[in-house]
Design a protein around this nucleic acid. Structure first.
Length: 138
RNA sequence: GCGGAGGGCCGGACGGUCGCUCCGGUCGGGGAAACCUGGCCGGGGAGGAAAGUCCGGACUCCCCGAAGCAACGGUGCCGGGUAACGCCCGGGCAGGGCAACCUGACGGAAAGCGCCACAGAGAACAGACCACCGCCGGUUCGCCGGCGGCCAGGGUGAAACGGUGGGGUAAGAGCCCACCGGGGCGGUGGCAACACGGCCCGCAUGGCAAGCCCCACCGGGAGCAAUGCCGCAUAGGGACCCCGCGCGGGCUGAUCCUUUCGGGGAUAUCGCCGCAGGGCCGCUUCGGCCCGAGGGGUCCGGGUUGGCAGCAGGAGCCGGAUCGCGAGGUCCGGCCAAGAUGAAUGAUCGUCUGGGGCGGGUCCGCCCGCCCGACACAGAAUCCGGCUUACAGGCCCUCCGCGCGA
RNA sequence: GCGGGCAUGGUGAAAUGGUAUCACACGAGCCUUCCAAGCUCUUGGUGCGGGUUCGAUUCCCGCUGCCCGCU
């Protein structure tokens, strides 16, 4: 990583909020198996509809990384894809608000529940899990 | 109206809000450039099975020589369709169904080998055994012995050397007759599978080939994680084992010796050429290739995250005409229709219907009210043609049987 | 995605097309003061659905589940 031009978001409160998206942490996805395995060794919090793993990867970086995974226990390909899509949709809303920069989060779907739970409950499950993980990390 | 058979099709619609991916356009930001990155606008974005990966191809790489033979694997009534098929269409035969129609790995068992447990006299060579009949002899009269007949019968068994009926006979038997079945010969129809009828033969020859096999036909191997290019990294590796390092030419390119600098000589070593030799191409013949002083094997060490192409215009889709019973063929016109890679095509809300549930009415065809509200199987991964399997609900066409009415 | 293999008692393994066998485990009994070991006996099975055959664990077809490989 050689960020020569990054505007240094060390100061959490940038008063010039005209471009508010500039200081928000960028969100990327985890694609490498090794990253998933590292997250699996970190702290985890289960909820009714999902299991969330979170670890502090690089405290200084303004990047949140998200991973989504569903094993074959969740069901066939349709069920697995649907579960991951709902997790992605919920994470896009919740993590943008509550996620902490420099963290990796991995969301793991559960059979039937992830696909059928009401959307608001899905989001509150994720928010609860993030609070728990952040609380334990301090 | 009830019940059934076959074929085809659909498998939600519309609209907000927020998103994903690809393509095109446009406007920026960074950078010397290649290029990287962002906003906006427009457009495309799962299936009938995308599935299972069971067949057949296209396309790549490897092997790539020709002919014959062999091995291995597959297919298996006949004809046609097709790029090809184990698929499809038409026909035949067999079985099932009152019928529409359905089902069928459906070549060969007098080419050969093998198997047929248990039971049973006997399980594939057909005769032996028991029993039966006649005559003779004996007889404690229950039967026994000899000769002849050798056919029917013999609890069984999946299967028993034709079946049923009659005549015939001492008793019987294709011994004789009728029908059925079987075999042979030639005839007619059909491209053929096969069908039909005729004559002859009283008539010897089970089943299993999804057992080996025979016959006919087909078939190189691997697969897009193929393959090619770029980038990065490591390295021109190490250890051990096996086989081998033959002959000739100095050939001057090294090397060495010598030199009067023109050259001359040597051949141990490196290199070169030729031969012997070795190996490979399934086998043979012809032929070819490689090694030729190195080759082969095992292990260790290192690398493998990436980018682009392959990769979306094809045996393509739609419509029409025409040929064909049909599968399908030919011609004309129009269209371009996903391209991801921890893997997009979504999340959520609303309005509708298809439906579903509850209650009531009913002339029982149906009508009214309220509620739920899209919900089956299932997600492209190089691409096609098939097969198989899964599937809520619905629509259309044709046909059959029974009942009622005209 | 592509390719390959396997399925037999609770577990691990055998079975020319002809009664499914063996070991351990489980249960009961004998032995022992008791336990263990030993001995005897019993229970229990061909993954599912079809087909060929008189007869299928075996042969054929289709599903289901599990395992392995790819650079």
């Amino acid at each position: 990583m050689t960020p020569p031009k990054a505007p240094d978001p060390q100061d959490g409160t940038t008063p010039s909020a005209a471009l508010s998206c500039a200081d928000a942490p960028t969100i990327t996805t985890i694609k490498r198996r090794a990253d998933f395995l590292r997250a699996a060794r970190a702290d985890k919090q289960g909820t009714k509809s999902m299991l969330v793993q979170g670890r502090i990867r690089a405290p200084g970086e303004p990047v949140i990384r998200l991973g989504f995974t569903c094993s074959k226990k969740v069901g066939n390909a349709v069920a697995r894809n649907r579960a991951k899509r709902r997790l992605r949709a919920a994470a896009r809303e919740v993590v943008a608000e509550l996620g902490r920069p420099g963290w990796d989060y991995v969301l793991i779907g559960k059979r039937d529940v992830t696909a059928e739970r009401p959307y608001d409950a899905l989001k509150s499950d994720l928010a609860y899990a993030l609070h728990q993980l952040h609380g334990r990390a301090e």
